[in-house]
Design a protein around this nucleic acid. Sequence first.
DNA 1: TGCAAATTGGCACAACGTGTCATGTGGCGT
DNA 2: ACGCCACATGACACGTTGTGCCAATTTGCA
Lengths: 200, 200
Amino acid sequence: MTRPSLRERKAQRTREAIVAAAVELFEEHGYDSTSVAQIAERAEVGTRTFFRYFADKEDVLFGGPDADDEVLTLIRSSLAPAGASDSPLSAAERSARAVLDRLCAQAGLLPARERIVAATPALRARQLLKHDRYVTVIEAELAQRHGLPPERAGLLGRVVFTCAVLAYERWCADPSAAAVGDQLERTLAEAAAVLAPFQA
Amino acid sequence: MTRPSLRERKAQRTREAIVAAAVELFEEHGYDSTSVAQIAERAEVGTRTFFRYFADKEDVLFGGPDADDEVLTLIRSSLAPAGASDSPLSAAERSARAVLDRLCAQAGLLPARERIVAATPALRARQLLKHDRYVTVIEAELAQRHGLPPERAGLLGRVVFTCAVLAYERWCADPSAAAVGDQLERTLAEAAAVLAPFQA
DNA sequence: TGCAAATTGGCACAACGTGTCATGTGGCGT
DNA sequence: ACGCCACATGACACGTTGTGCCAATTTGCA
């Protein structure tokens, strides 16, 4: 691996300085009561520079404009059919497990982030929009790579995604209780049991 | 029923004028390219008055600040246990059916609204946030009135809500195919079948 | 008719976000 | 080591969203 150029390293440090300053200020005074000017000042950059690194004020908590791409490629790769006997359901579960594992792995600065997002409707909306984009990709991938009709792909994708979010929340509530993958399996089983009466 | 006072009727006409002007302009130039000043001008009010009727620019497409309350009370009332043998699942289905019926009944200005929302990420995010608030209420109601543990209430509420959204979309795609209530039942059955392999 | 209360719109203001441009710094070939 | 070119930075001006304040107007009611 080649060491990144001096320019890129400097840019990376600037990014991290901005994020750190933003998280500090958000936890001190709340998201809404913190201005971009304050963040820029603490990070020792101009406000104009802030908007070069992040599309908007919300973006600073979502890892910049290209953070989604990483998750999306992970989704795409883990959702591809593995072998001839791979069912769409097992692919969806495997994919959800992969994303959850990755998500829970870097649990370092998650708590602060989650706390701020939960406390701010605008950020919560942004997060839901991000999830919605994930679901759209999942549906498309399921339909295209597994040959599912769009309606079936939509159903499978959304139900499994819903269970995955729930499993993540359960894991967050008590990370020592069970691995997030086990929480996922448990949640899916519970959902199946709850809906069982509808299976005529 | 008492006839609303002259003041209230006038206010109502102003509201409708603003909404009509906004929808027109949004369809002409798109949401982002339309300024509040333009809306206010076409509705023949001041921009200051616009923000007295709607909390923000997005709100004009979501029926004002108190439109949610109507849906929320409908959710609450239809979600209450009906009789001793009423299961949480059947209550959730009944509630979803009630909201969907109400939603599909006033299908007049729905298409334009849905089109604009679908084309604008900021509005889509707002809609998702609104749905999220619904789910929160559903979960709380399910836990409180039906005595479900929070985890179970969260699962049941979200899964049924997901199916309800899907049923609504299917109904929108072809309103003549089946009543939205039938679509809901069909979707729930399909979800149960899809998840069946997880029922050990 | 006349008074109290509510609605209205204009103004000033803070914050977000973007286009533009002069300045400074890093990368790189000579 | 030098100089050139590309790029990053920050400053300024600008449009838009959203809010507080206040004077003018209109409504409801006695």
